[in-house]
């Protein structure tokens, strides 16, 4: 018996972007981090790029593929790390969708934030999602909240960095008319 899949152009694009995100995620996880939970989050550049260029449907698929496959490769599938990663990814995508809602009307569309604004929102909500899951499931101690300001500070700074990277990427790709 032969299996036949009909794949669309969109499927190929999602596979490509997900592969890119997974690669970045895995490379990134090999570097030590100054603070547990703080990572540059360069894999989110891919998610963000997908969100801005192709919409949240594609971004959701890329993001879920990244979280699941890289956890399988790294051996953290269904472990606390995986749960943290998943909750961060989902919350950041949800908040991106919510932020974009008012800009979906055509009269307002040109006012929507660039990659920088989206990146900061994504990274703050990613961090908050992870933090809340960590607090609720793993370390349910009120003292943990003393760390929240530090984590959010890192999230803002790293969000700005990844936002600038994403915007440069978008500019490059627009110039080359890919």
């Amino acid at each position: 018996m032969k299996l036949h899949f009909t794949t669309t152009h969109q499927d190929h694009r999602i596979a490509l972007l997900a592969a890119l995100a997974i690669t970045i995620h895995i490379i990134e996880s090999a570097f030590p981090s100054p603070l547990p939970g703080v990572k540059p989050g360069l894999a989110n550049v891919v998610t963000l790029f997908t969100f801005i260029r192709y919409g949240w449907h594609s971004a959701l698929q890329v993001s879920l593929l990244r979280v699941i496959i890289s956890s399988l490769v790294l051996g953290t599938f269904l472990s606390p790390t995986f749960l943290l990663s998943l909750s961060g990814a989902l919350l950041s995508l949800v908040s991106l969708i919510v932020i974009q809602l008012p800009f979906n009307q055509s009269s307002f569309h040109r006012h929507q934030p660039s990659a920088l604004g989206y990146a900061v929102i994504a990274s703050i909500s990613h961090m908050s999602g992870q933090f809340l899951v960590a607090w609720y499931f793993f370390i349910p101690h009120p003292g943990l909240f003393q760390l929240l300001p530090i984590f959010i500070t890192f999230a803002v700074i790293l969000g700005i960095v990844s936002g600038i990277i994403t915007q440069l990427l978008i500019n490059q790709i627009q110039q080359r008319k890919l």
């Binding site: 006012h111 929507q112 934030p113 660039s114 920088l116 604004g117 900061v120 929102i121 703050i124 909240f145 003393q146 929240l148 300001p149 959010i152 500070t153 803002v156 969000g159 700005i160 600038i164 915007q167 440069l168 500019n171």
Partner: peptide, 28 residues
């Protein structure tokens, strides 16, 4: 450089810094 910030970005950055300062003020 080549990156253009829109008013919405500046608003978001402003809100983010207020949020951060507010978190420091409550938890620290």
């Amino acid at each position: 450089g080549k990156v253009i910030f829109k008013p919405a970005d500046i608003l978001i950055l402003f809100a983010a810094s207020i949020l951060t300062l507010w978190l420091y003020s409550i938890f620290w």
